[in-house]
Nucleic acid binder design. Structure first.
Lengths: 237, 237
DNA sequence: CCTACTTCAGGTTGACGTGACCTTATGACC
DNA sequence: GGTCATAAGGTCACGTCAACCTGAAGTAGG
């Protein structure tokens, strides 16, 4: 056992991209390959030590920018993981105890486009990470599950889903975001009714053109709505 | 500026006691008087530095036991506060930067009874803390507000309120707990219907005697219920 | 012993939100 | 002009909730 406790800040970043095979919109996240022990060569959440003059959020934002080039639309603290035996494994033996303050973030389509797929950064569909041969470094697999649950819960009672989208968007696109996050189909009519009822979006007055069907209205997310609730409930602890 | 970042664990503890004047059930919490700089003499949340071989929850539990003699029924991580300028004030100038991982807890009536009101520990009604002449040490006032919001939100979608009560209790008592936490009156009939509908309590088959009215049934909290939701919604960010 | 009083237990009713489903609108494409 | 695809909007049966009402069951006081 060692006296020193190290403080790190990591971030789970979610983005939406079409799945390479099915073409459906799915959740992706960037992982960084460890270039030193412990867990050298394994995939981990982007993060790093907390600098003495850096706030927690700033630290999350800075590491994210440095490693992935991303500037998230939404960034929020998730949880502090700090058990003594966390990520207990042969790889970690003999290394310092680390308390990680983990954030989670959403990036929009446009920001996503600027993401760097460097040598040591790669994007993965979230539901395929569990199937990877190698589990994630440290307890990052557990952290990812936790973040995913939080995202799914929060999407039903807050308008964060908008953060995935550009400034203006048709309702169908917003619905596809919800479907991707919650991983189930939603009734277009009822979705429309609920979203419009709670006023988290407002009509821009314009429509999207160039579609092979009736042109959908364009909406933008309305400022300052609380009292948000979709009936679409997901599991909550 | 200094290089060292210190890690502390603090806890916001809630308990229910009758108000000394009105006699109504209200929320109370224990505070500890600072006996050294910074903020010497001011009231602060119970807490202390994280020991190298101690898990985060363990640390919260241990400090609580040591300072107040309390063993909470419910204990849960609240948030990590770690901004560089947090608790920025004349008192704090020149002292080390502290990142606090804050927990919040509930204690039942019986545990509460064993609480020690030592020289440097005192219980306060939550709504009177803001009126104190001296604000709390560090940013603990902000933290308290945050914890209170979390408690109020969580009480509507999870059966934690039971943690305030003894093993067996009449429904009216459970309702009074909700009323104290949410700070508003609830319709007895509708409260009964909602609580019974979601099955978070079960009938013990016995009744409370000695009351000046029809003897109420005694209930106990039922194990393992998720899918809990009271319509009684409070503010949520 | 009887009545008043209090709170618990449980039922009724109208308003409202939701899920399932249906109809119509409107553009592109051939 | 007809076909196609999806958006926009509507209908209806059902379940849930807040507000209100009635009866039950004990104690307290004369």
């Amino acid at each position: 056992m060692q006296d020193r406790i190290e403080l790190a800040v990591s971030t789970v970043v979610f983005s939406l991209r079409p799945h390479p095979e099915t073409g459906e919109l799915t959740l992706w996240l960037p992982l960084v390959r460890r270039i030193r022990e412990p867990y050298e060569g394994r995939w981990a959440l982007p993060g790093g030590p907390l600098a003495p003059e850096e706030n927690l959020v700033e630290s999350a934002r800075a590491t994210l920018q440095r490693t992935t080039g991303l500037t998230p639309r939404h960034l929020e603290q998730l949880y502090a993981f700090g058990d003594v035996d966390r990520s207990h494994s042969a790889d970690a033996a003999g290394h310092a105890r680390v308390v990680s303050i983990v954030y989670w973030a959403l990036v929009g389509e446009d920001e996503d486009a600027e993401a760097v797929d460097g040598e040591n950064v790669e994007w993965f569909p979230v539901d395929e990470i569990a199937e990877e041969a190698e589990p994630l470094a440290f307890d990052h697999g557990v952290i990812l599950d936790y973040a995913l649950r939080r995202l799914r819960a929060k999407v039903t009672y807050s308008p964060i889903a908008h953060a995935f989208l550009p400034e203006e968007f048709p309702l169908a696109q917003l619905r596809r975001v919800y479907e991707a996050v919650l991983n189930r189909a939603l009734d277009p009519s009822n979705f429309r009714r609920q979203i419009l009822a709670q006023g988290s979006v407002e009509d821009t007055g314009r429509r999207q053109t160039g579609t092979a069907h009736r042109p959908p209205k364009l909406y933008r997310s309305a400022p300052g709505r609380s009292r948000y609730a979709l009936t679409i409930q997901e599991t909550d602890q």
